[in-house]
Design a protein around this nucleic acid. Structure first.
Lengths: 192, 192, 192, 192
DNA sequence: GATGAATGAGCGTTCATTCAT
DNA sequence: GATGAATGAACGCTCATTCAT
């Protein structure tokens, strides 16, 4: 048996992290971060408690990894869809992608919105999240500027507020929330 | 000396509850419900740990009291402003009242939104909150129906989503969030 | 209104003590001494927590009063029935009186036997109980000596063990325990 | 290094349970179940408070383990000694075995009798203890029936009451109680 | 790498006791 | 005398984290 190559090791580590992260994601969304113990995560992931500390320095670091990893994906949607010269088509594409993404990532968003509301936990991410968020603000502002809005940044924040509000209400009451209608409504708002 | 009269006791009890509730409100909003210990609340309120249990049966009951008490106020705004025959004026009044209320009750809203995102905590209030929320939905639907919307309930939920999204973003980034602009924007949306 | 005479005060105090003691007796027998709080006793007795401390120095003193008061009665049965020259008639009378007494005082005996088994609680009474018990031993020994037993003290302790054993088993399983048979059995043992 | 084998873990677990159980046995017998804190047990056993919860789910479960484990042994004496066809020899053997067992297991019996007197604690064991006790009743009844007693079950309960009474008095006053005499006295009673 | 026994600080809660009224 | 608000120590229990194996 030859020792694994460095590449294999990295891959192995990434896989293990994924297993643990997925278990944590599920539990955090059901019970909240504070109420979920490392023991429960270990059991859900099918590993020992101690092993979690081989892959993450602490419970907080596990949360950080979980959040930051997925946030890249989330904020990336705007980046990819809008590109440098955002058009109505790319704007519509972005909205569509977001609505799809949200439905797949309900558990994550539940944790994410919960964290946003807790300053003491938010401190763990504040810098990264705010940097990414303001980056997206700028990108979208270009679109709203092109569309002729007087205060494109405020419109951006207004637009994002609408999205956040929709997603939050959808998460809370997924069965009854008229998500499809909300989507077409927002499209109408901006694309006539 | 004779003991205090019943009236004195009731007044005293209400005052003490207020002191404890205020301390809890502050800490819950900063740290979250689960991360705030009864010890911290007692210290913040300037009373002993044990005393809290003279006024509240448990930490959860304290949260319930805190939330349900203020939620009545919050949902009451729509009821009072809209009345039975909602007009554009009363609708505008309601929005204005909400924006005022939110700025005064940031700490509460922070806790409130946090709770909405945690199923395990939400269980404590689900029934009451949902009942009140659906009540407000109906009331607002009347307005949107009068305004000619084809699907007034969906519009209500869309409108409330916008408000929630605005407040959530405001709470997260109060210093930079363009709250006044968001307010005039939403007014324009519905009142021309 | 003239102030009460000293006699009235003493009577009043005795009555209040009785009320509290009766409440405590009931609760101690159901839940045990340690698991019964002063609050519960106060509620059961229909008085305030504070008042209990007007009549008893501490929870332990309340227990002491409860036990020692009734123990006098219990040990007194032997004294009264046997007299100085115990006969078969007085011995039979004593047994009969004890069996009657036990059925009325089940709650007390439950507490009493429980206490006997806890050295740390027993310390509160050890001196008094042991003094009274050894006093009864001597008195009964006279009877067994008269009956011709070689070792009257051992027989006394054996006889008392039988009574204790019967009462303990009766208390544990009152519905099914054949108390009447046990009584006639012990009478047969000693009176042929 | 690889983790311990399952066999090692089981052995280790049994040993640790024993250490904790022994400490609890000592303290429960001295102070009673309710007055003995988990902290004291941990200190006595030389382990941390938290560790006790690795081996027992709760303080009550620790008591249950302690009691039920030893009760099997205690009730087993009758079963083993008497067999299916009890004779005078096996009856004498049983009494002898019980007297030996009692002297070794004073601490246990102290807890056991204490529990029998507290309905709220007794609830934890009622089913198991009563089942075993009635089982022993039946077995002994065979012996008393063979001996010609008219009501063998009542005689059984009377006989067991005597044993219980002796042991209880012995436990309370071990130094002075004439245990050997009590033993020969009860043997004389039944075996002439 | 992987395990789970072990720790100890801290949690929510209870309660005997005190004391201002 | 009588009340019950107030205290603070202690309780049973949990849990993030460490470490011998």
């Amino acid at each position: 048996m030859s020792p694994r190559t460095e590449e294999q090791l990295i891959k192995h580590k990434a896989e293990k992290r994924k297993v643990i992260t997925q278990a944590a994601l599920k539990l955090f969304s059901e019970e909240g971060f504070q109420s979920t113990s490392i023991s429960k995560i270990a059991k859900e992931a099918g590993v020992s408690k101690g092993l979690i500390y081989t892959y993450f320095e602490s419970k907080e670091e596990l949360l950080r990894f979980l959040i930051l990893d997925t946030i890249d994906e989330m904020f990336g949607i705007a980046e990819v869809s809008l590109g440098i010269n955002p058009t109505d088509e790319s704007f519509e594409k972005m909205i569509s992608d977001y609505f799809d993404w949200v439905q797949i990532n309900r558990a994550f968003l539940q944790i994410y919105f919960g964290i946003l509301m807790q300053p003491s936990v938010m401190k763990l991410f504040e810098k990264e999240i705010m940097a990414k968020a303001y980056n997206v603000f700028e990108r979208m502002s270009v679109y709203f500027k092109n569309k002729g809005f007087e205060d494109p940044l405020s419109e951006t924040r207004f637009f994002i507020s609408i999205l956040d509000g929709i997603y939050m209400n959808y998460i809370m009451d997924s069965e009854n929330y008229p998500l499809a209608k909300a989507k077409s409504r927002i499209l109408t708002m901006y694309l006539k």
